[in-house]
């Protein structure tokens, strides 16, 4: 799941090297925290949050396949 968010964020970011995703487990669910360069924050969120929303939809599918729950936080 970390790889999924990493791959998407790196593909969208203008500074892919600064993309960092950390994965932790909190209260029975997986929490992914995405960090990007300041100039890329708008890109990974998108207009009206559409990019972030789309990443969350795909993350849900990945979590279903793994039999777990996951949330994405953009730092």
């Amino acid at each position: 799941m970390k790889e999924l968010i990493e791959y998407i964020a790196r593909s969208i970011a203008s500074n892919p090297g600064a993309v960092k995703v950390t994965q932790t487990e909190e209260g029975g669910q997986i929490v992914l925290r995405l960090e990007v360069a300041p100039e890329d924050k708008g890109k990974v969120i998108g207009r009206q949050g559409r990019v972030a929303q789309a990443m969350r939809v795909l993350l849900r599918v990945a979590a279903v396949k793994d039999g777990t729950r996951a949330i994405l936080e953009i730092m």
Binding site: I8, I12, G46, V51, Q53, M55
Partner: peptide, 12 residues
């Protein structure tokens, strides 16, 4: 879900 994937791929 298909729409979300299509949106991301288009953006990339």
């Amino acid at each position: 879900t298909l729409q979300a994937l299509q949106f991301l791929v288009t953006s990339i």
